[in-house]
Write a protein that binds this DNA or RNA. Sequence first.
DNA 1: ATCATCTGTTTTTTT
DNA 2: AACAGATGAT
Length: 836
Amino acid sequence: MTDRDESKTGPRAGGIAARAMAARGASAPDYVSGLNPEQRAAVETTEGPVLVLAGAGTGKTRVLTTRIAHILATGKAWPSQILAVTFTNKAAREMKVRIGMLVGGQVEGMPWLGTFHSIGVKMLRKHAELVGLKSNFTILDTDDQIRLIKQLIQAENLDDKRWPARTFANMLDGWKNKGLEPRNIAEGDARAFGNGKGRELYQAYQDRLKSLNACDFGDLLMHPIAIFRHHPDILAEYHQRFRYILVDEYQDTNVAQYLWLRLLAQRPERDGERQAVNICCVGDDDQSIYGWRGAEVDNILRFDKDFPGATVIRLERNYRSTGHILGAASHLIGHNEDRLGKTLFTDHPNPDDPKVEVNAGWDSEEEARAVGEAIEDLQRRENHNLNDMAILVRASFQMRTFEDRFVTMGLNYRVIGGPRFYERLEIRDALAYFRCVCQPADDLAFERIVNTPKRGLGDATIRLLHDYARAKGVPLIAAARQIVETEELKPKPRNTLRRVVADFMRWSELLGTTKHTELAEQILEESGYSEMWQNDRSAEAPGRLENLKELIRSMEEYESLPSFLEHVALVMDAEQNAEMDAVSIMTLHSAKGLEFETVFLPGWEEGLFPHQRSLDEGGRSGLEEERRLAYVGITRGKRRVKIWFVSNRRIHGLWQTTIPSRFLDELPEAHVDVMEANTSYGGYGAGGFGNYGASRWDGAAAFNEGAYRTPGWRRAQAAKEDGGNGTAGWTGGRTREITYEGGEASGGRAGRGHNQPPRAGLGLYSSAKRGGPREIEGELVAKSVADHESPFSVGDRVFHLKFGNGTVALVDGNKLTVDFDKAGQKRVLESFLQAV
DNA sequence: ATCATCTGTTTTTTT
DNA sequence: AACAGATGAT
């Protein structure tokens, strides 16, 4: 190990260790005083393997950070001797801040606290030559990766439509997540792609990466693993260095990460004795939500075997949420079979706390509006900060509706993990320029910008350049430099290319001398890239220029262009201004680890949540992962959780009727309030979701069978039969009309009839008075659907809230085919139509 | 070489 | 519906 660390130089004055030691009290240090016994055990059991099973909100991060502070304070290790791995950059950042708070001041000197990937790069930079890379290798992002794969597929003379690069990229990712090299992948997998050329493509891809002096995300783990395996001396150095290893979110580690960790943690025997492995993994099997990305919950279950004699500590005392929220979450997650089984509890149950709310909406727009109103309400009436509220969605496309709504309302919001700064077109272009300057072998970057802005260097020229480069075996930039001295190109492109090459050479020379921010600016100016956007009259051009400025600004904090590029590749996410008061909108996945006073959970509908794809691809375990996601969502809330579902959602551009998520049925009545505006509410089991969407049951036998054994479901069934012919749900034609008018009346947004606030009494819960026809505002809600006697017949003119006017073309029970004047022919439910 | 139009695909989650 | 990529016209 060449870098200097504190084990050699001693604690620096003002360094973290020094401060930690100063903070240590004579007896029990005060940093443990606020801990409960389990937490304290997790902090103080520093020696040997420890597995902490930490339920949501049980102070997991606190334990981790305090443990580190404890190790430092007791002088067991220097900061540089602690390896602390987190799953996300956000988590790493937070840990740094919190350790800093414990120890006082900023954290410096924890060089090995970071994500698997950032630590991986750090190691790889040091030993790059061992895997055939140079220390300044580039990290490819998904976009580069796909472009490269596409080239390879074409080079193999495969049809790139039949064998999409994206698919292969996903396969690659899967293999690397499992720690598989080309020779190790399953035969079947290898044959499954590109006419059986999967393995060859993988190998070709790796070879190409090497010649580009690049690696992808997976390699940041794969390469270190290979190095550890083939160079025991290097591994031994790391063994010696890392006295303590801490791993956050252990349930989310994949096989590659597991192998990497195990190599670092398992020490060879010495004098017949296993050396102490001071590894502490913290996780929660109930929050394992990255199975689709190769995470193996199994890792957490196997901990004992990997590290014999492990101490297992359970944290079940929840400090975050109310009893109702915990009750709802626990009951829901109880439906999972594959779990270690923890039960969260709180010391402060309070029956006055608000129950978990379930709300119904007509469509996604109404949902957004209702959520917006609820937010304003909390703001106004309860004086809540927007910062204390979050909307957690299953899929990012859901965010847009909320954004649209909040913009018109003038409500501050902040999208977390949305379209990423560094993924924007202009940013990627600019970065490509910088990459070319820093890494002359970066062909992908060069290709990206040779003709951006348009210079007249089209396909033909690039192809020639490519061939030339391949023939000479040099990178594209080098080839370009040579080719302009030959007669290969026509004069016009040749001169243009010569200018481009000259530019890059000039910039490269400035790299060492000019300040990097100035150089960056200069590159964007001289290349004509800034000008390109200045001349662009499109609406987004000014924003793009602004982003470019922001890019330069954010470079200030880094010392050089290369180090900035590294940051970008790893983080991909720019800091957001956390200053202003704003509602957060994010996916459930990115919400993990966070908490909010109030949490909104929209989109609880079958197909969206649980997501259809999880169901299709993951079967039961897929469903269980979705349920864990729901659990994560609910447990983000400290005081209020408000769930929404709607009956219409636009998917792939067309409106679809949706039915409520099965997860709603899995919530315990005792902790849940079904928000209903109207008259009689007969309990949500009885009145409720079961009845909703009765029309969907027509062919949905599967829906009735199998998984549905919950009390709520049975009640729903009972109610359904109870209602007998004619009272099932809201399929009655008049229902729509009533709700429609209700919506208009209080909706406050005329002209958009389909928008309608929840108070209008959708009949979604069918406001069950058990056993009888239901009434809403004095009107009979349900009509017979049993005999399917449609009020419509072929040729009738009808109106649909989404599709507008049309003519009935076919009647099939309560499903009608309608030729809409504008929207074309659609198959719709009778209940969505009104006679005109 | 570049632009316009047409096609097909897409939308789960992320380091 | 929105977008990317491909194709054909200028």
